[in-house]
Design a protein around this nucleic acid. Sequence first.
DNA 1: GACTCGTACCTGTTCGATCAGCTATCACTG
DNA 2: CAGTGATAGCTGATCGAACAGGTACGAGTC
Lengths: 149, 149
Amino acid sequence: MNHAIVRVARLHRMLAAQLLRRVGLHPAQELVMMQLWDYGPQRQVDLVRMLGSDAATMTRTVKRLEHAGFVRRKPSPTDKRATIIEATPASQAVRRQIEDIWAELETATAAGLTPDQQAEALKALQQIENSLARAAFSGPHQDCRPDGP
Amino acid sequence: MNHAIVRVARLHRMLAAQLLRRVGLHPAQELVMMQLWDYGPQRQVDLVRMLGSDAATMTRTVKRLEHAGFVRRKPSPTDKRATIIEATPASQAVRRQIEDIWAELETATAAGLTPDQQAEALKALQQIENSLARAAFSGPHQDCRPDGP
DNA sequence: GACTCGTACCTGTTCGATCAGCTATCACTG
DNA sequence: CAGTGATAGCTGATCGAACAGGTACGAGTC
């Protein structure tokens, strides 16, 4: 199963990259945009939390998106540590395209599976996700001892 | 399904990285080693083909593995372009550990699924892999026309 | 032997993921 | 108010993934 997951992951990512290049985005950047479009302006930490990403990665991703003109940053009025990220009006121009790409990806993935099989596969994936999350986050404690002094 | 695949992929990779750090390897490096252990010395192209990776990536991965003492390179006796990669005797010391890690990963992944469900999930993954491969490699042809002159 | 074409590999570059280290701010406590 | 710890964000470094471009060799052709 490991090999299968690795290969599916790579192919899925590769196909996503291929499709996204049409609009000049890289994988992971479109997730940020979709998050912003769907839930409005928010802080980087919120993006990190929602996308399960990393703060350092998010910093650079946002920087690139800002440079490309897709997002804008403004200081939070209530917390001087935080910056609010929002999608620019210009970014709305590609929103539709990205949603189409996402749908195309979904179609390509599900091709060859009956609706029933799709539902089953989705359930299995979610179960696997839960198991992996448990193993990844609580498994390695091993002892719950950081490292001493 | 897209989101599920992305999350599972990330978690799976994260867990693999976590486990592999014990033996000082990074994700993808262990795939090369397992390939070499299972099928013996071979050329880089063969590794690339078997692992579905990229020639450039393989060059650097092999370089790091060589630097770490896990593999050795020797010129092919029959083809002066090619180099043969082989696992060093020293690498055998971690073979068992890596196989254990792989098994642990498999266990963590399958936890929460009955054997029947595992078989179903594996079949679904393979079907998805096929569909994605078709979409990724023959899909973007769009017309099979390179670009003219 | 010179040409051409494909193959095997390397290098440079860009991007995502992650770890470690750093600053600024906030919230809480004495 | 000063001290402390948590939080938000940035930067440097390393590694994998992928693309583009380049070198060296092999095989076939004329």
